[in-house]
Amino acid sequence: MSLWEYANPVKFLRLSERVLPALWVFAGLCVATGLIWGFFATPDDYRQGSTVKIIFLHVPSALMAINAWFMMLVTSLIWLIRRHHVSALAAKAAAPVGAVMTVIALATGALWGQPMWGTWWAWDPRLTSFLILFLFYLGYIALWEAIEDPDTAADLTSVLCLVGSVFAVLSRYAVHFWNQGLHQGTSVPVATGARTVSDVFFIPLVICMIGFGMLFVALVLYRTGTEIRLRRTRALLARGARGA
């Protein structure tokens, strides 16, 4: 039994329908627990006061905004190489979710930045990178919408995703070169393993991140299912028209 079995749309639908209810509940519980714990059961930061609590929305959404693009990159590659429809449709389904996560990260960042830096928006490299990422999401979604033939749309958006990823990374470095930042260092440094956030904040933050991750997976599975049903309807209609 291999993972590729679920590249079959019908099998994928069957599995995702079985997994989804549990996933929704788990994601909802994690997000609720993390947010309630984070908002009401953590002390104020000695420097940032209660504004620090927006971290429980800001960091998970920012993480998911980047992960969504990375997932689209992987699924686009799978579509181009192995031509599994589920893969292309999952990329299509993930894009609006990623775009919304980017908006949440930007909006919560602005709300956090106003009391901290005294400004809603600064052309800080991290903020700017996210804004550019949002523009890439917009272009990607618009290209999907504009092309009628679904296979051509999947092909072209995959090429855009690959080229766009290269340019997104280039933009990130260009932006760092262009302006030094105000943004604090990363809250969850994976590479060094050092912890910059104290335990009181860290545990609910991790719960929130798991919750957002699960929420993302659930949303993408659900939306992919919708896309598969749309394609199925389309295929049946096309066959019916030819048979008639």
Binding site: R83, R234, L236, R239, R242, G243
Partner: peptide, 16 residues
């Protein structure tokens, strides 16, 4: 002419 229910590896068949 291809029959409407024929399976020839066309890209929409996976959804039928």
């Amino acid at each position: 002419r291809a029959a409407p229910d024929a399976r020839h590896g066309a890209s929409d068949e996976a959804f039928l």
